[in-house]
Design a protein around this nucleic acid. Structure first.
Lengths: 221, 221
DNA sequence: TCTTTTCCGTTGTAAATACAACCGACTTTT
DNA sequence: AAAAGTCGGTTGTATTTACAACGGAAAAGA
């Protein structure tokens, strides 16, 4: 566990907390780690989760497959991000999605009950952790709403423009790199890959943007 | 404020807490109330929210309007539900959506900082509230993911079937009533109203379901 | 009661999308 | 180095959807 402390220090959840305090909190919170190799399932649809999870190494994909095998990528988890908190409540049902390692990954498991059972005298940083936890979920909530806005765009072009301008804002530049390939991007936007590819080229021909592989540049007007 | 205590008692946030304790907590948490009449804006896109909000009376609609005036209903808030928690973090930006009263409504405002600044000695139910708050957000998070699943369905028919079977599960019966009219339902699913109406009638003609106004019945097979 | 407005189903047409299939470039595997 | 696989762009066709417009029924308002 100790080798992940420097990583934890850079997460939102443990921001501003010293390495020694993190070490003692890891004990207090019953933390454990597990490794997954690329393409391995971290969780299957139908499983029950009770822990709070944090990605220490690698990258994960959260996806859903419907009755007819159509795949939708719902989200991407990067190093330092927390996940699984949506299923932390005692009465939350079975997991509705699959979580898959996009690269070799390490996941940390935390006992959610211990985090929420406050012990201010024993652990001075506990309340700080609770605040950080709340703000993190709050932010995730906001991102979900943003993605919902994206998905409620009706045409492929509108979805692309929303997604690309969101990415440009995130990376604070009109030139940026995305981590999806075309198929994943199409799944993320819930559109057909070839139709999306078509639309991208149309927009390029119209002078709205340019791209090479995963590098995009947006032009004004 | 006192007249809302019996309502609060039935919310998830204050479940299992006595009326007297709620009364003292309302003081402790700097709670205030505000009334809105039907169709009035509770919040406008671009505003900044710092409070945690709870609907004490009425019904609210959360919607988004894009540059060209296309309307998307993102969510519906019913009595006892909490909202605004996505914008509670200090660094969350401006509100991206509009919140509108679908009926005459009363909204309670709570100081989020006071909720998260723990005072276990002064307020024995404070930790309980924090837990309930976390579980509530956790559940909302899960619902957002569910709606995302809905939105990532590609055809109008798939969206309708997902939405209707979700409602059937929620109300635990194959016959149920929905609170949307057709236009709102179409906005909620982000599809064209007439196309949706068309598809509904097709499915009825195929014997998959039946409906009269807002009452739906789903048939097996 | 009469008028006005809202709601919902219907239709036709233009536009957008899904799907399948193919190809060339590039990467990975053996 | 050869073979196999992945990836992204292109095309044609069938399907689906958006949009506009209309009319009847119901609801709301005067």
């Amino acid at each position: 566990m100790k080798k992940y402390i420097s990583t934890l220090k850079r997460t939102k959840l443990f921001a501003g907390i010293g390495e020694e305090e993190i070490a003692s909190m890891l004990n207090c919170l019953n933390a454990s780690a597990k490794n997954y190799s690329k393409k391995e399932y971290v969780f299957h649809q139908g499983e029950y989760i009770r822990d709070l999870l944090l990605l220490a190494e690698g990258r994960l994909i959260i996806q859903k497959e419907d009755y007819w095998g159509n795949l939708s990528i719902l989200n991407e988890i990067c190093v330092g991000e927390m996940f699984g908190e949506a299923y932390a409540a005692p009465d939350s049902g079975a997991l509705l999605n699959d979580v898959i390692a996009a690269e070799d990954s390490t996941v940390l498991f935390f006992d959610i009950e211990k985090i929420l059972s406050l012990c201010p005298s024993a652990c001075p940083y506990h309340t700080r952790l609770v605040k950080a936890l709340f703000y993190t979920i709050s932010e995730k909530n906001r991102k979900l709403v943003q993605k919902l806005s994206l998905m409620s765009q009706r045409t492929t072009r509108e979805k692309l423009l929303s997604y690309l301008s969101d990415e440009a804002k995130k990376q604070n530049s009109s030139s940026f790199t995305i981590s999806f390939n075309r198929q994943q991007m199409a799944d993320f936007l819930s559109v057909d890959r070839s139709a999306m590819s078509n639309e991208l080229c149309k927009m390029r021909d119209e002078g709205m943007l340019d791209f090479h592989k995963n590098e995009f540049t947006l032009f004004e007007e």
